[in-house]
Every structure is written in C-alpha cells, then in structure tokens.
Write a protein that binds this DNA or RNA. Sequence first.
RNA 1: GGCCCCAUCGUCUAGUCUGGUCCAGGACACCAGGUUUUCAUCCUGGUAACGCGGGUUCGAAUCCCGCUGGGGUCACCA
Length: 580
Amino acid sequence: MSTGYARNYPPGMTSDQTPAITRFAPSPTGHLHIGGARTALFCWAYARRTGGRFILRIEDTDRARSSEDAARGILEDLAWLGIGWDDGPEFGGFGGDERGVGPFHQSRRLELYNARFEELIEQGIAYPAFETPDELNAMRAEAEAAKRTFVYRQRAEYDHAAAVERAKTEEHVLRFRMPERDVTVHDEVLGDVVFPYAELDDLVIRKRDGFPTYHFAVCVDDGLMGVTHVLRGQEHLNNTPKHVRIFEALGFGVPAFAHMPLIFNTDGSKMSKRDKDKAAKKAARDAKLEDHPSPGVTADGFLTWLGDKQAQLGRDALSELADAMGLALPEIDVEDFRSAGYLPTVVNNFIALLGWNPGVRDVDGNEIDRFDEAFLAEHFDLGRIGKSNAKFDREKLLAFNADTIQHGMNDAAFAETWLAWAERFDAELAMWAKADAARWAIAATAARPRAKTLKDAREAIEFAMIADDAIAYVFEGKATKKAMLKGEPTGLETLREFAPSLGTIDDWTPAGIEGAIQAFTDAKGLNMGKIAQPLRVAITGTTVSPPLGETLVLVGRESAVARVGRCLEAGAEVKNEPSP
RNA sequence: GGCCCCAUCGUCUAGUCUGGUCCAGGACACCAGGUUUUCAUCCUGGUAACGCGGGUUCGAAUCCCGCUGGGGUCACCA
C-alpha cells in the first residue's frame, strides 16, 4: 500500500461482488484474432457477471498500421460472436456513449492526452528526450555487448527547464520518469508479482509524431473511463508495472489486473496468420504445383512465395489456392472460424474453456463443459482463470460444433442458420436454397445429422444440386460393386424390379417414399439393404447419402426416375462384360 | 542473455489455497464391442497423467527448496 497501490474495490471483498467496468481495446491493424476474441469474451462476461459495464475502445495510435476497415471488421466479428459492448463506437445497435466517456478511438482523444502531458511535464514526471532512434540502437547494442540490460534513465545532471526549452524547437519524445522503487503488481490470476526498479526504464510516453504511446494512452483512457478491471493476455504482464506507475502519476486509482494464459497451436507454435501460408505451401509442394490457379498471382510470384518461408500471400489469393487444392486452411481469426461454418456459441464455449472452467457439475456429477453466453454471463469469475498456457485443439472444437448442430438445435433453426451462412459464404448454395423453400427444409433435415460445420453440410446434399447427367455410373469401388453387382439377385436386378414403382408413389414425401420401399421389400421378402443401396447408388452415384426418403425428395421424382434409368442402362453394359 | 510467469492423461482440464475421502475425476481424440438400409448419430467398455530430485509430515498431486522443461518480455508496435 505504501506504493500508492489502490484497488477499486474494498479490501477483503472479492472483486466478483462489485460491478466491474472492463474494456476490450484492440488495435485495428488486422482481423480479430481468436485469442483476442477470448479476451473480449472474458471482459464481456465479467462485466455481465458483476452487473457492470463493458467498454470497447479502438487503439489506433499507430497511424501507419491502423485502418478504419480493420476496425469495422473487428466490430463485426464481435457482434457476430454476440459480444455486445455498452460503451463504444456505434455499430448495429451496439455501442454509443451513454456515460460521456468517449470518443472511443484514441486518435480522436489527442487533446485529452495532451492535457495530461502538460501536467506531467510541469511536475517533472514527464521530460523531453532527444536521442534519435539510431542513437538508442547504438546504446542498446553497447549494453548488449557488455551483457547488461539496457535501461533508459534520465541523467543525473539533466536540466529539466533547459530540456523543455529545447523541446520547443527540436524534435523529441516525451519520457516518463520511473519512480525509484520496486513495483508490486497485484494480479487476480497470478497473485503478487514484484518487478525490481532496475528493470524498469523511463519509457517513451509520447512519440516523435506527437501521438501517445500505447502505454500512456491506455492508462489515461482506462482512468478516464473508470475501468476497474483490466483483463488481458499474459504477454502484457511485463508492461503492467509501468502502467501501475503511470496510473499513480496521473492520479488515478490502479485497476485490478487479471492476466490470462496464452493460446498456442497444438505443436506449441504461436497461432499466426503465417500458419495459413505454411499449410498452403506444404500442400502446394506435395501437389507439385507450379502456378497459382488465379490470374492475380504470377507464376514467378507464386514460386517466390513457395520458396520463401516468411512470404505471405494475400487473404483472397490464399483461399483461392486452398480451394483449388481442396485444402482447409487453419483457422486463426474469428472470420476464419465463421467462414468455416462454426457457430458463434460454440466458438465462445470452446475458447472460454481455454484457461477457464466453470467448476460446476451436472446432475450426474460430471463437470459442465458445454454452455452458452448466458451461462458465462452468469458464472464467469476471475478466480477460476488458470495460469498455464493452453493449446488450441481444433478436433475438440469440431466435436463441439458437430454436437451443437446435431443435438443443440432443431431442423428449422438449422435451416435458417445454414442459409444465413450460405448467403455470405456460399452464393451457389444460397441460390439453390432460395429456389425452393420446401426443398431447403428437407435439405436441412438431411444434412443436419451429418454436418460437423455449416460448410461441410453442403457435402451431404451436394448430389441434389448437380445435374442428372453429371453422375457417372462406373460401378467401381468395393462398396459400389457389392451393392450393384454381387449377390443373387444382384442389386441392379433388384433395382430394375423396383424402378417402375417410382412412378406410382402417390405420397412423394420422405415418409411416403420410405413406406413404398418398405412395401416392396415386404412383398419380395428382401432385406432393406438389398434395395436401399442400389437405389442410393442410382440417385447419388455413391453408397453414402441421407436416408432414402430424404434423398429422393431432394432430387425430385423426375430426376429420380431419370437417374435410375441411366443407372440401369449403364448397368446393362457392365453386366455383359466378364467379371474380373 | 536479464527479468517475469508456468508445470496433472496426446489435448483442454477437475483436484492444489483449507495435506488423508485421489492406486487421481470429466471432456476431446484414440481403441474394442453393440444399435442402425449407407454415412453420420447413439449406447457400452477400455488405454492413458501428478516432469525430476531433495525436504516437511504418521501421511503430499496438494506445503517448502533446488533442478529440468515450456512460455512471455526486453520498440518512438499494440
């Protein structure tokens, strides 16, 4: 306490009992990373859980790398996840500035920072420094050569008044004079962490271009916006002692911190955009590709990319390449999971489990690990955040997604969700869906029990989207041969017998069709499989499809008759050839 | 390299604070059976972990120390 540390809730009370003001503060330099999504989710959930507020703030003080497009993309991804902010930029019904603590773009808050800079300069806490980047690099190199940690300090003979005078005409940065005391960071996850003064240097708080650095802007904003709890990744832990001192110098209370474990790939590497290039390069090499499928990329450019481990292809070029190779790129950003057909609730559920668990059991005494946002809003707490890093297991995510599609929603909800997805990510499928609403309902019923993602749901009904003559009846492959050519009678023969009934089924619905097939097998004393598989091959060209009733309704009676006819024709030729 | 954080099944984790009920529980994956007209689902069962070494204690996954291993961070990026 002697260090001036102040919590925003009374001592002895757990932070969970006080309404918390949290914030998510992305810098708009790219898409929302899945790790960032977890941070946002936890901040959101904690604010909800405690009946507080969740703020969204755009940290765009890096003028070169920030963009409005990126900011909008992040907002959209958050909205898709269902992470709504109470204060922040206006976006689709979210956001706004009820409490008057905005604006929420740091680039629009410059006068706020400037006022603070003036105060701190007057107090001698902030001071101008004139070293050029080159000079600093030289100093760092020198320290490294001498095996010392480089720590920038104000010189003993530093003349503040003279420096301020000089700063009026000369380019400079502003540095923060670090108080000469060790700092103890009180962390809700890690406990107390002590940082020796010797490790803390006089950091830059205003850049040469006049913009505040991240460290400074974050503290001013968190202070001004009344943030009580800072939840962020553990990579920020080493920044925290600096922030503590800045908060104190600014006269703000120090918020509570909760540093969360990091998320990595299963192999221990960082989850980075480069992973996509890596996967694509490997696949391209395996396929011995020599050119990029789209004209936007030259063969030379492609080969250069292929040979350079660091090289990255544009987002679109990369996905075109992956599509051409039938490769699924590793998902890294929220957008990736979205386009791959994961459900937002499942994504939230899964990432929440990376470093946190509810510690709640169901009636059987098993731990609850499947939950939605509402559950998080009710149960999320800081005390159950883990300390050790986690690996992102896509197999488990996929299993969760499949489970929710197959058991957590009904056909109607799936039909709607699937169509909304298709409208954004699969125009062809969306067009097919809207051409026939009744058919789409059946498609959803047929696809849902087999779909792990919205994207692969299409595979289950693809046979209905193709033209009748697009199916080649080759009768190769073990399963097909067994279904069509083996046994006595053969599948083809049974199919030939059954074929005329297709035209006489009055009730052309899944149930009506199944009934007709049942009647056929009963009359002939056959097993269901004896007619089901040949019929399936005739309709879809494969031995795998949804239940026959649904399969037939999806293609329609006319196509069904045509396909069976073509199949029997092809079968007649095969039968005349000597069997191998 | 300096500083900081971490350490339970292959993976996510429960249990660690308040040592015994833990020859360690759940989930995903995997393996073996079963249901099913195909596929998928579903049901049953199984394999699998307290990093190592010292302490403290009647007793340690749980407390202490060391080691090893992993990670983070050392910008006028955030």
